[in-house]
């Protein structure tokens, strides 16, 4: 693989959303939106992606910062993970998101990496990242899902030709918080539930999110619904730093009279999308957040899981995380 020198590209540095959208429309599939660069430069250096135009959106002020709104907060897509990790407002009201941001990569990467980039980053399946012509890259095979393929970091749920997983730590937290993604394109602006923003290979095998060429993630809106609730976040990875989750979990829970009155819980690293565990939610609602509920929740969580050759360990791992989320939120 050729490393180091990136292929040349035309660089644009728009300072307004409209300008960025015009450029994105002009270049379509040949254009690439650059935010924090922590995913983009890997692709460019490996020459696995060679866009003709790179549209660096960092100069667009409207995409930066955290704002309090009437019914929650709005986080600009370019807000860095360090800003989220250290924001007093987010720590106070939506601690699970600050916690998730704190678990991403390493300090320097959190200084540069953005929340928008963290949720829009491409999967880390090493066969795909290596530039092989797999399904996700437009080919007609999966190199991971073969007798010899090393699939220990791949999915338990939702396999459909591709078995890659969602790598993001903040995505499960946003699903747990019932966040909405604000997407803009030439036709205007729309809001999409975080849960529907991420898509599996059954919907489109070449994309991880609903974003089409020409679409820009502008901001993320978190409603007040879960502000100040009980939260839980945990990430298990092989290394403590600069590593993607084998499995991570984010939960938001409300407890009344020692009974779980409401809960949202989502797992990363087990499917192509941050997987909302609606069955778990139904199972534990009305029960106390204790060990017995946790055990029931854990077995409900992994029902229907389809382990691959080398990732069976993710089933007990996911069960342990669900148990701890129920007991320790």
């Amino acid at each position: 693989m050729l490393r180091d020198m990136m292929a040349n590209f035309e660089l644009y540095q728009p300072t307004a959303i409209d300008h960025a959208l015009n450029l994105m429309n002009r270049y379509g599939d040949d254009g690439w939106v650059l935010a924090g660069g922590q995913d983009s430069f890997d692709w460019f250096k490996d020459r696995a992606k060679k866009p003709r135009a790179v549209i660096d959106i960092n100069g667009i002020d409207d995409l930066h910062g955290i704002r309090e709104t009437a019914d929650g907060i709005e986080i600009g897509a370019l807000t860095t993970l360090t800003e989220i990790e250290t924001s007093a407002l987010i720590k106070e009201k939506y601690g699970v998101l600050a916690d998730a941001a704190r678990h991403v990569a390493s300090p320097q990467i959190r200084n540069a990496g953005t929340i928008g980039g963290n949720v829009c980053q491409d999967t880390r399946c090493w066969y795909y990242r290596y530039g092989l012509d797999c399904y996700r890259a437009g080919g007609n095979t999966c190199y991971a899902d073969t007798p010899e393929g090393i699939d220990r970091e791949h999915c338990l749920f939702g396999a459909d030709r591709c078995i890659a997983v969602s790598p993001s730590d903040t995505a499960p937290a946003l699903v747990a918080l019932d966040a909405r993604m604000v997407v803009v394109n030439g036709d205007g602006e729309k809001e999409v539930q975080a849960e529907d923003f991420f898509i599996g290979p059954d919907v489109d095998i070449m994309r991880m999110t609903i974003l089409q060429p020409g679409d820009l993630l502008k901001s993320i809106v978190i409603p007040n619904t879960w502000a100040g609730a009980r939260f839980y976040f945990e990430k298990v990875a092989e290394r403590n730093t600069w590593d993607f989750a084998l499995v991570n979990i984010a939960a938001a829970m409300k407890v009344d009279n020692n009974a779980i009155s409401d809960i949202r819980i989502a797992c990363g690293g087990v499917a192509c999308v941050p997987l909302r565990l609606t069955v778990v939610e139904e199972v534990v609602k009305g029960s106390p957040p204790n060990g017995a509920s946790a055990d029931l929740a854990a077995s409900a969580a992994t029902r229907g899981a389809t382990p691959l050759n080398y990732n069976g360990f993710k089933i007990p791992l996911m069960e342990s995380l669900v148990k701890r989320a129920i007991r320790e939120s």
Binding site: G37, F41, D56, T80, T82, Q108, I109, N111, A112
Partner: peptide, 9 residues
């Protein structure tokens, strides 16, 4: 901010 200068233009 400390950043990795191999990942910035």
């Amino acid at each position: 901010d400390a950043v990795k200068s191999c990942t910035v233009l």
